[in-house]
Nucleic acid binder design. Structure first.
Lengths: 230, 230
DNA sequence: CAATAAAGTGTTATTTATACACTAAGTAAA
DNA sequence: TTTACTTAGTGTATAAATAACACTTTATTG
């Protein structure tokens, strides 16, 4: 049997982040243009190497902040990609994360400095550097699974949102049409939404009521063993 | 903004494997006794460092073979653990996997050589080395989620199994009692089981019929967009 | 041959999911 | 100021899935 002496060389360790946003009824993705070879001027996921004194999750949060000005958002580990040739320069293993971002909250900050950042509809994602297409694909599958049994979709919306916005969000993530009446019935029956007194303004039709996600109710909800399920 | 020059030092990269088996109506876990410090003589998950020329998945399969004589089994990436102090010697990031093993298939091989390996009931897991308890916990949660929408439980059983065995398997993974008639109705209705002509022998009661998982039917099943769900 | 032990089998009630169409309210254009 | 347009908002009936529940059959053992 082989003895595991393990000095150098070691694979490099990086993280890459899939950043989701929601706008104009569509799910979006934040991409960064690479400034250096390899894949210079190609679009890519924001990423970077893991420092010795940080966890991969701390690294992902640091990258979110440094490359897109994003902080304090929902983030979850996605998958670790380790194909030996995924970076042409050297062996790099990437622990990937996905983040859910309320776009309005960060619109000004994203793309600051010299970093060119842009939101893309998930239906119009350009060719990506490295194996980033695989990473995005995995993130979409994960998100689809996730929203059905965890109320994470709200992370993508403003604090106040209409039921139509919420429904559009689910429709675009799940890539399916949902019946309006059944959707509203089900989501309201859970008791996790607070109906606000406020309504839309300056719309050319009947103004929709705003709702907000009731974090307190959700806490009680989970503690009593009930499960969110859509 | 920080520039990402990334020479040494790098975290070491390892994989650890949670190996599930099923026997005597109980879910079991294969553990290895450590021969070296740190945690000498403590139980731990089989693990090892990732070589430059292998993916983390290949590494996990290699470890399964080297440490437990197990090969060609279901294996899936679980999570990457990266707390900076999870190994007292140095910074080690571990990409973990879980495997589902038919115990009968490997009973003789596991624990060969000098490696002391033993199966433990999940209700009687001893104190483990490193953060391995967290890893096991994550694996149990994953497995619970997985068996409900993917027919992976069969990986733990013999090719021929009785419906009672299958039910016990689900009961022990999901940690819940299941109604016999409803279970059989549902699982048979999916059309994924082949009833064999063979029955149990040498049992002190009515002999149960053997079934096997119908891989062909499952292929068609998935291709036609239906989903396994229990 | 009686006792034991697990296999095997249907029906009913309840809950959940699905399908479906009109009225209300606000703005913009004629 | 009236009409057209656009989206908000609402209930019911049917179908499907789930959950609850008990006795007969078949083999072995003492």
């Amino acid at each position: 049997m082989k003895k595991h002496s393990y000095e150098y060389p070691r694979p490099a360790l990086a993280t890459d982040c899939v950043i989701f946003g929601f706008d104009g009824g569509e799910l979006k993705l934040l991409l960064i243009e690479r400034e250096k070879e390899p894949f210079k001027n190609k679009w890519s996921l924001p990423g970077g190497f893991v420092f010795m004194e940080e966890t991969t999750e701390q690294c992902a949060n640091r990258i979110l902040l440094e490359k897109a000005g994003i902080k304090n958002v929902f983030i979850e580990q996605l998958y670790t990609f380790s194909k030996t040739d995924r970076d042409p320069r050297e062996r790099v293993v990437s622990v990937t994360y996905y983040a859910l971002v309320n776009r309005n909250q960060f619109e000004l900050i994203a793309g600051r400095d010299t970093v060119k950042a842009e939101w893309f509809s998930i239906s119009e994602i350009p060719k990506l550097a490295f194996d980033h297409r695989d990473i995005v694909k995995a993130a979409l599958i994960r998100l689809k699974g996730k929203v059905r049994y965890q109320p994470v979709g709200f992370e993508l919306l403003n604090e106040k949102f209409t039921l139509t916005q919420l429904q559009q969000l689910y429709e675009s993530i799940l890539e399916t049409a949902i019946d309006k009446r059944n959707f509203r019935k089900k989501i309201l029956a859970m008791g996790l939404l607070k109906a606000l007194d406020e309504k839309e303004k300056n719309v050319a039709h009947k103004a929709a009521r705003y709702y907000s996600f009731d974090n307190k109710a959700y806490k009680v909800f989970t503690q009593t063993g009930f499960n969110f399920e859509l």
